[in-house]
Design a protein around this nucleic acid. Structure first.
Lengths: 181, 181
DNA sequence: CCTTCATCGTTAGCCTCCTAATTATCCGCG
DNA sequence: CGCGGATAATTAGGAGGCTAACGATGAAGG
C-alpha cells in the first residue's frame, strides 16, 4: 500500500512531536504491510495471467478438497461455508461465484433437502485450471522464500504468529486509554 | 485474505503430490499474507470510524508535509506525484481526490505555469482531521507490536526487508524454469 | 510555424469488496 | 394449522482499485 517507507531518522524526529509514536513499532508495521502487499502482488500477477483473481482462486482452492483428497466424491460447499472459509461476506461470495460460474469453473446446485440452500462445486474445467496453475503457484512461493533459511523461516513464522494472535484478537485495540485524551 | 491457514501435516502430505510445493515456504507465505491483512484491518477499522479510508488516509499523509515540517508554507502535490507516492494509478488518484475534495479535506488548484497540471493541498479541515486521527493511529501500531521485544523487531524487519527486496524485484519470479514443464 | 510526441488529468467500464435491505425457506411453538 | 423468528442467498448501492482510451497542453524538431 504505502510505497515510500519513511526513513528511520524521520520517524525519530516525528516521535518528538507525538508521544504516542513508537518508532520501531511503526517501522515494523509499515514493513509488514508493504511486504505483505508486495508478496500478494506477485502471486496475483501470476493468477491474472490465467484470468483468475485472488478471490476466485481462494474459492477454487476451498472447493478443491480441503487438505486434498479429504473426502471421496466431489467437493461441494455452500456459499456461506465458502465465505467463512475465504474470509469474505456472503454477499461478496455471491458475486465471486457468479463470476466463476459465468467462466465455467464452478457450478451451482440447488439443495434438495433445504430449498434455501445451494451447493457450489468445481467443474472439470475448474479442476483442470487449478491443476494447471498450482505447480507454478507453489514454485512462486518457494522462489519468494528462497532467501530465508529453514531456521529463519521458523523464527519468522513465530513472530508472525505472535502478531496475528494480537491483531485477530476480538479484544481489539486500546481505543480509549491514551496519553492524549 | 485466506482465513484458514492449512495445518503443517496437511502441507507435508500435499507436497508428496506436488514436487514444487515447499511446505515451509508455503507456511511462511500464508502467515505473512494473513498477518499483513489482519494488521491492515485493525487500522482500517480505526480509520473507518473517522469516515476515512486507507487510500484517503495515505493521500492525506502524503500531503501533510512529507517527513513533517519539511518545507515552509502549504504542501501541495500533483495527482501524479501523489499516485507515485501512495502506489496507486493516476486514474485511481483522481477518484480518491474526488472523494476527499467532496468531503472538504483537500482542495484542487490549477497550476498557472502548466495548464495540464493541478496541485492538491490539504484544507484546514483535512489537517485537523489528520491531527485528530494520528495519535490514536500511532497508539494502535504500538499496541499491535507490543508483544515483540526491541530485538525481535530488528530481526523481524530484517527478514521482511529480505523478502521485500525479492518481491519488489523487477526480475520477477522464475516463470519458466520448473520441474513440471 | 506546425507537426509530432510525451505527459497530465480525467473518463469509461470492469471487478472486488463492503453494508444494509430483500426474498424465500425452514423450524418451533401455541 | 398458522405465525414469528432464524437463516439462506441474493440484490441495491457505494467505494476503491485496475486498464485502456481520450482530450488538452507543452516541448522539440524540421
Amino acid at each position: 500500500m504505502l510505497k515510500n517507507l519513511p526513513r528511520y531518522e524521520c520517524l525519530l524526529e516525528a516521535s518528538k512531536e507525538f508521544p504516542d509514536l513508537d518508532p520501531s513499532a511503526t517501522e515494523v508495521f509499515l514493513h509488514l504491510l508493504r511486504t505483505g502487499d508486495e508478496a500478494f502482488r506477485v502471486v496475483e500477477t501470476h493468477l491474472a495471467s490465467h484470468d483468475i483473481t485472488q478471490g476466485g482462486f481462494g474459492v477454487l482452492m476451498a472447493l478443491w478438497g480441503r487438505c486434498r483428497g479429504n473426502q471421496p466424491g466431489r467437493d461441494a460447499l455452500s456459499p456461506a461455508a465458502l465465505a467463512e472459509h475465504t474470509g469474505v461476506t456472503r454477499a461478496t461470495m455471491t458475486g465471486l461465484v457468479d463470476t466463476l460460474e459465468r467462466d465455467g469453473l464452478v457450478r451451482r446446485h440447488p439443495d434438495p433437502a433445504d430449498r434455501r440452500m445451494v451447493t457450489v462445486e468445481l467443474t472439470r474445467e475448474g479442476e483442470s485450471l487449478l491443476e494447471r496453475i498450482l505447480p507454478e503457484h507453489f514454485r512462486q512461493m518457494a522462489w519468494l522464500m528462497a532467501p530465508l533459511t529453514e531456521t529463519e523461516r521458523k523464527t519468522f513464522v513465530g513472530l508472525l504468529a505472535k502478531l496475528l494472535q494480537r491483531a485477530a484478537d476480538p479484544a481489539e485495540a486500546p481505543l480509549a486509554t491514551a496519553s492524549t485524551p
